[in-house]
């Protein structure tokens, strides 16, 4: 895992990073059964990664729903189709915005803290100390955080989608006066359980959760043990996660829809 030293060439360096990351994923997966012995640690990570992200997820979801309803209402009123606002909000959020925005927020809120935490453990030789004590840092530090992200992300995406509907309902029905029944009936008629909720929210957010957690843990685990290195790794977590989320979103949409 010393790909960074391999070359100064950006392309080669990125390739080496991706390769290292893939190998690290295998190590991580191999360590998952062992890490289940520290299940309490995984629960703690779900708390830190998931439950503490609820505030930002819910506030952002609320505003995304509100602005979507506001924008859609004015465009749809040109065609006399304001009743479709709920339907369009739900489809847009379930299929794209929900998982993608949650994942981006998740990378910013939880991914960075994972990277910084593990990175500081690396910088302060805590990981080396664990190895000395015959405690596998991958199983005890990395895997619980990876699993925590994997568990938290779909749940956060669901909460995000629900608050988005709440926001759009607030603006659309309570403020702009779309009929409540039409708002819901159009949405219900348009949204399908399998394609939208399962393929849209669940699968996408599960994949995004895995990718963001993997990148965050990997960047922290392989950071150069300096304060500059930790800062750099944290930045790279956000950049790489964002790119991976948006690129994967396209691929997943092509496959799942």
């Amino acid at each position: 895992m010393n790909g960074r030293a391999a070359s100064d060439n950006v392309v080669l360096r990125s390739l080496a990073q991706i390769g290292d990351c893939g190998l690290f994923l295998l190590t991580l997966l191999a360590a998952v059964p062992r890490s289940l012995r520290h299940a309490r640690e995984t629960v703690r990570q779900v708390w830190f990664i998931g439950a503490l992200s609820l505030t930002i997820i819910m506030v952002c979801g609320l505003f995304v729903g509100m602005v979507l309803a506001l924008q859609l209402y004015h465009v749809l009123s040109i065609f006399g189709g304001t009743a479709a606002t709920g339907e369009v909000v739900a489809l847009a959020v379930y299929r794209e915005l929900g998982p993608v925005l949650t994942a981006l927020l998740f990378a910013g809120r939880a991914g960075t803290s994972i990277t910084a935490e593990i990175g500081l453990m690396r910088a302060t030789d805590q990981l080396a100390a664990m190895e000395m004590m015959a405690v596998d840092p991958v199983a005890y530090v990395a895997a619980p955080r990876f699993l925590g992200g994997l568990i938290a992300m779909p749940l956060l995406a669901c909460v995000f989608c629900a608050t988005t509907l709440l926001g759009s309902h607030l603006v659309g029905v309570s403020w702009l006066g779309i009929d409540n029944g039409t708002f819901w009936s159009n949405m219900i008629a348009a949204v399908e359980l399998r394609t939208d909720v399962v393929n849209g929210i669940l699968w996408k957010s599960l994949v995004f959760g895995a990718v963001v957690s993997l990148i965050a843990v990997f960047q922290g685990y392989t950071t150069p043990p300096t304060s500059e290195g930790v800062a750099y790794a944290t930045t790279r977590t956000v950049v790489a996660s964002s790119i991976a989320i948006l690129a994967l979103d396209f691929v997943l949409t092509a496959f799942l829809m």
Binding site: A152, V159, A162, V191, L193, L202
Partner: peptide, 28 residues
Amino acid sequence: RKSYAVGTGLFIVLGFATLAYLATQTTS
């Protein structure tokens, strides 16, 4: 430790509750 365990449980229950809501109340 208890507090975060309870909180995590609440979070997971909340997540699954919203999932159930989305799956049953907003779909066909």
